[in-house]
Design a binder for these strands. Sequence first.
DNA 1: TCGAGTCGTGACGAGGATGTGAAGAAGCTG
DNA 2: CAGCTTCTTCACATCCTCGTCACGACTCGA
Lengths: 124, 124
Amino acid sequence: MSATARSSSEIIEIGPLLIIPDEHLARADGRVLVLSIRELRLLTELGRRADRIMPREELFRLVWGREMRSGDRSVDVYVRKLRVKLEDALPGWRFIHTHFGFGYRLAAERSGRSQLDNTAATTE
Amino acid sequence: MSATARSSSEIIEIGPLLIIPDEHLARADGRVLVLSIRELRLLTELGRRADRIMPREELFRLVWGREMRSGDRSVDVYVRKLRVKLEDALPGWRFIHTHFGFGYRLAAERSGRSQLDNTAATTE
DNA sequence: TCGAGTCGTGACGAGGATGTGAAGAAGCTG
DNA sequence: CAGCTTCTTCACATCCTCGTCACGACTCGA
């Protein structure tokens, strides 16, 4: 493994998902997740406020650095892109949850059955 | 350093690839990889930080020993040369991965298959 | 149930970043 | 100096990201 230990490296852990903003990457079970700049920043800002519902306007401000114009769907589109890559990397898990009329919330939950069902989802 | 046997011979192992900076060579399944000085140094610096994304500017600084002029494509060109030789020596493997907008990352992954199959290039 | 608003999703084009082959310069060896 | 290898730079090709749109599915209150 890496012999060099980073002192101030921020690491956000969301279930099996690891977000390491300083290294410009996220990991799923150790595997590197290939994300674009916007995708990683959005995931990071969501991760920093895990379990909290984040309004689109605030996410946009955090990631894009400016005010969101009404009707702008950028956040939705990037949430979609993240969902695809996360589902691809960690099938059986759901991370980005929609709160209708409010925004999005990041949290690791198993998809398919109830959270009580611990049976591993069939991996294709 | 001297030409005598060194006690601290650094050996970097990236899957089936072995980098031995002190001996100015790399090995693929035992076979010696013929690399030029720049190629070996670039591979070494990447290997020393395996599985981490290295920005071009930093790679250039480490290998060339001076600041990179903006627009300089030297790193890209040498990444290409390394890729060709590595593919030649170890077909079916991919080592140098591009992270768009960030830089390059060295890790042993089997090509052809999804990145998800990769078992994070640690020592097996 | 119905309608208005909200969200999911695929696609597209522009612009920028990276891949790639080649040519000439520079260095090395005998 | 001749012949070879390596280094640097360039131009063109290709790929990727981003922002946006359109359309359909969904949600919730009336």
